[in-house]
Design a protein around this nucleic acid. Structure first.
Length: 239
DNA sequence: GGCCAGGACACCA
DNA sequence: TGGTGTCATGGC
């Protein structure tokens, strides 16, 4: 495979900054052309999505899969089973994905909340306006911005754009510094430009993670890496 | 042996 | 409001 030359000239980056709407769609098209559909979220049902979203916090997905498999083998991947299990036993099952004591507490907090407020019904939890749902999720111990949005998008099926480390890194290094540094500013920038399409948001986030994992972290200058790779698929320009 | 991985929270200035 | 320490294993 031919490595891209160092590109991303000042002229190219200036154009990207001036035309964020076009560039945002072009970046998606280029990533999709390169990687194809990602079929996210890899889980059996919405509760497994939620558990995975909590367990993947600062952890490699391969290790999260081991922990989820442990939960399945112990028949513990239900809210009731998580509540009933002793904290030490649950932590033991979560051991492969790290932070096992903290994550055991987080899973139990979610299971407790679901029982108390929704009778263990995810449909009841999800059957409310997205802004209300998001505030409720954020009130649960262990659920922050990214985890809440992952749950809303991948478990509830509502179009919110998930902002993660890879998304910030890739777009900042592509020159989109006007997006702001706060989570909500970055998210608003995406959602103001893109149509509220659940499938688009799903695929876009997954593609950014795929690209971040496979390309950006292996290149010292990610800015050049991203622009170089992306430009290679559209000649010499991101336009 | 060091660094990083699909973050969140508590604490402090 | 923003910065920092903590939580912790597994793969490269």
């Amino acid at each position: 495979m031919v490595q891209p030359r160092v590109s991303g000239t000042l002229k190219e980056r200036a154009f990207i900054s001036a035309m964020p709407q076009h560039a945002l769609f072009n970046v998606y098209d280029l990533l999709f052309a390169r990687y194809g559909p990602q079929h996210w979220w890899p889980a059996d049902g919405p509760f497994e999505v939620i558990a995975g979203a909590i367990l993947t916090q600062s952890a490699a997905w391969a290790n999260v899969e081991k922990a989820i498999n442990n939960l399945k083998l112990a028949d513990a991947l239900t809210p009731a089973a998580l509540r009933d299990m002793a904290p030490g036993k649950l932590a033991q099952l979560l051991y492969p994905c790290g932070y096992y004591n903290a994550k055991a507490k987080k899973l139990k907090s979610f299971a407790d909340h679901l029982k108390i407020n929704h009778g263990d019904s995810l449909n009841h939890l999800f059957d409310q306006p997205v802004d209300i749902l998001r505030k409720e999720l954020l009130s649960i111990h262990g659920v922050g911005d990214e985890t809440a949005d992952s749950i809303i998008l991948y478990a509830a099926g509502n179009p919110v754009f998930v902002i993660d480390t890879y998304t910030r890194r890739i777009f900042k290094r592509l020159g989109f510094n006007q997006a702001g540094s706060r989570y909500e500013d970055f998210q608003a920038w995406f959602m103001d430009i893109l149509p509220p399409d659940m499938r688009l948001f799903n695929e876009y986030h997954a593609l950014l993670v795929r690209h971040g994992k496979e390309v950006c972290k292996k290149t010292p200058l990610c800015r050049d890496c991203c622009i170089g790779v992306l430009c290679r698929y559209r000649g010499s320009s991101l336009t």
